[in-house]
């Protein structure tokens, strides 16, 4: 299996002096679900943005699908950001048409199937949608792109348990189809349900990098307990 993402000594210092990442190195193999975990301010979103080319690393190297992502990004990746911001004054069908006009490998047919599956409310302006429906829309748009890498930051934010399960199924199905998923979430139970490999970040450093099975075996408990212990400092 080839590496889809390779980061070596990745650091990011913001203009205000905040050191968000302090030389992290990791790789993500294709056809896997890779989770990125950590408390608030650990550097998860910074890592995702560096991998997608929206932020320029201060030092270190990154290759996403074999190319340096900064500044032009990676067209063979689809991103669901933490803030599910879309154009509020536009109705959902128009938003889909607009998205389809610039998103690579976008399929309207695939979008319709996904929207139906997730129960998306279509006939409304985006500004009138609930948080859950915004998430459904963003996830449907992202997965309607046929790309090699899906980067999902809190992809189940605001969803009820049934739809959350559907999104996790969607993630699993895509990986079975040969895609790679990079997944970041605060809901550890769902991460545990889907992920193969993970890194855990704290204050810009990697606390753990390996498979979920190894982590659980090493600690003899589930991911949530392991994570809490790690940050309480009771176990290492």
């Amino acid at each position: 299996m080839m590496d889809v993402i390779e980061a070596k000594g990745l650091s990011k210092v913001y203009k205000n002096g905040v050191k968000a990442l302090k030389g992290v190195s990791f790789s993500i193999r294709s056809g896997r679900i890779f989770a990125l975990l950590g408390p608030n301010g650990a550097g998860k979103t910074t890592t995702l943005k560096c991998l997608l080319g929206t932020l320029k690393p201060t030092s270190g190297e990154i290759l996403t699908l074999g190319k340096q992502p900064f500044p032009d990004g990676v067209k063979d990746a689809s991103f669901v950001p933490e803030e599910k911001s879309l154009y509020d004054w536009i109705k959902v069908p128009k938003m889909v048409k607009i998205f389809g006009s610039f998103a690579p490998n976008f399929s309207f047919e695939r979008f319709e199937k996904l929207a139906k599956r997730l129960g998306l409310t279509m006939d409304r302006k985006i500004g009138e949608l609930s948080q859950g429906n915004r998430t459904k829309l963003y996830v449907s748009l992202a997965f309607a792109q046929d790309v090699k890498l899906y980067v999902l930051d809190e992809p189940t934010w605001g969803l009820d348990p049934l739809i959350r399960k559907e999104v996790l199924n969607l993630v699993n199905e895509n990986v079975v189809g040969g895609k790679t998923v990079l997944y970041s979430s605060h809901i550890l139970s769902e991460v545990e349900e889907v992920c193969d490999d993970l890194i855990i970040l704290k204050e810009g450093n990697i606390m753990y990098n390996g498979t979920l099975d190894n982590l659980k075996e090493k600690n003899g408990t589930n991911l949530s307990e392991t994570f809490l212990d790690m940050f309480r400092g009771e176990k290492r």
């Binding site: 997608l52 991103f79 792109q145």
Partner: peptide, 8 residues
Amino acid sequence: YLLIGRMN
């Protein structure tokens, strides 16, 4: 973030 990556 909707645009970046999907367009250079």
